[in-house]
Nucleic acid binder design. Structure first.
Length: 369
DNA sequence: ATGCATGAGGT
DNA sequence: CCTCATGCATA
């Protein structure tokens, strides 16, 4: 691997045609605008007590400890402040707002085994590993332009991360800091030129600014490509499977969108960049001489159980944020207490905290770069 | 564009 | 039970 300042993080790959892709054929999304109005909720005070009760001493004096610059953090801080203010005055009349707790969710019988193309990295940012794709002799880059449904046999490939705990100093940082070095234990990657080329300049690839610039360029060029056809984020995701890069399968619209908007973790951005870059180059090349035919109908397969998304109401959400500001990682018991208090399922609360942490991490990183 | 969820790999 | 990469569903 080119640089492994981090243990792990290889792209695990195996058989090429991997990846069961399942896309919602229904997607076609217009977008919406920002929303969310706030409603007052006096439940905050009570909520606070959950956290305040047996609380670890360290967070006492300063509820801001551990918080930082993220926008989210600021919001949380405000929530925490608000809640403290009320703590004394308080008038907690809980409205048991419990809108129907929509915790409904039929569990879909997963129809698609998803095999994440995961770069198993860990450790906080600083990480800058790249995936190292192995070469693929058959590297026939075939159609990758927006096409429709590719009958990808859902063969999973089990990728696995072999970690090598290497020295991972956190040098690098900022643009310009040529870090390089890295004895590439990696070898043979003489495949997709773009990918290979990309890995030559780790610095540039890991530099937040470079990533940002690339994401922007990517978006513009992606849109240009479509012109009359319109290459959507979903198209790109699907097309990736056609770019037969080892270990690289399709991705969802969500991921492409997040890449473009830089809402992925730093490591994730780094891992995806070479792949998207390879696609972009190939797509533009194809666009030159070819023209894509209007695909075939993919139509939605069958009626499987649809997963229902739980929706946490604004008041509850604010309470959660307040708790989070005080303790981002509540214990199982606390989670249970919070869940009960808010009349939410414990798992919903647990997941909310997990997601909140991921989000906060991204924001912290973004804020410092 | 994003919120909530799943799953793999770890601890 | 966590973190991470991702995805489905939805606003």
């Amino acid at each position: 691997m080119s640089m492994s300042m981090y243990p792990s993080d290889k792209m695990k790959m195996s058989a090429p045609g991997c990846f069961p892709g399942r896309y919602s054929p229904t997607y076609r999304g217009p977008d919406q605008m920002r929303r969310c109005m706030t409603n007052p909720s006096s439940r905050l005070l009570e909520d606070a007590s959950i956290m305040c009760n047996s609380w670890s001493p360290r967070t006492n004096g300063d509820i801001f400890s551990g918080l930082n610059d993220g926008l989210l953090s600021r919001a949380e801080a405000l929530a925490a402040v608000d809640m403290q203010k009320h703590q004394s005055s308080h008038a907690a009349h809980q409205q048991m707002t419990q809108q129907l707790k929509h915790d409904v969710m039929y569990h879909h019988s997963m129809g698609a085994p998803q095999r994440p193309l995961q770069t198993k990295n860990m450790f906080q940012m600083h990480g800058m590993d790249n995936l190292d794709l192995m070469s693929d002799p058959s590297g026939s880059m075939t159609t990758l332009t927006p096409m429709t449904e590719t009958p990808i046999s859902s063969s999973h490939h089990q990728l696995h991360g072999s970690y090598h705990s290497m020295n991972h100093m956190m040098s690098h940082h900022h643009h310009g800091g040529p870090l390089s070095g890295h004895t590439p234990g990696s070898h043979h990657s003489a495949m997709a030129a773009a990918v290979a080329a990309a890995s030559l300049h780790p610095d540039q690839d890991t530099d937040p600014r470079e990533l940002e610039a690339f994401a922007e360029r990517f978006k513009q060029r992606r849109i240009k490509l479509g012109k009359y056809n319109c290459v959507t984020q979903a198209d790109v995701g699907k097309a990736l499977a056609n770019l037969k890069l080892p270990g690289v399968g399709a991705l969802s619209q969500s991921t492409i969108c997040r890449f473009e908007s830089l809402t992925l973790s730093h490591n994730n951005m780094i891992a995806l960049k070479p792949i998207l870059q390879a696609w972009l180059e190939e797509a533009e090349a194809q666009a030159k001489n070819k023209r894509r035919d209007p695909d075939a109908p993919s139509v939605l397969p069958h009626g499987e159980k649809k997963r229902k998304r739980t929706s946490i109401a604004a008041p509850e959400k604010r309470s959660l944020e307040a708790y989070f500001a005080v303790q981002p990682r509540p214990s199982g018991e606390k989670i249970a207490a919070i869940a009960e208090k808010l009349d939410l399922k414990k798992n919903v609360v647990r997941v909310w905290f997990c997601n909140q942490r991921q989000k906060q991490k991204r924001m912290k990183f973004a804020a410092q770069h």
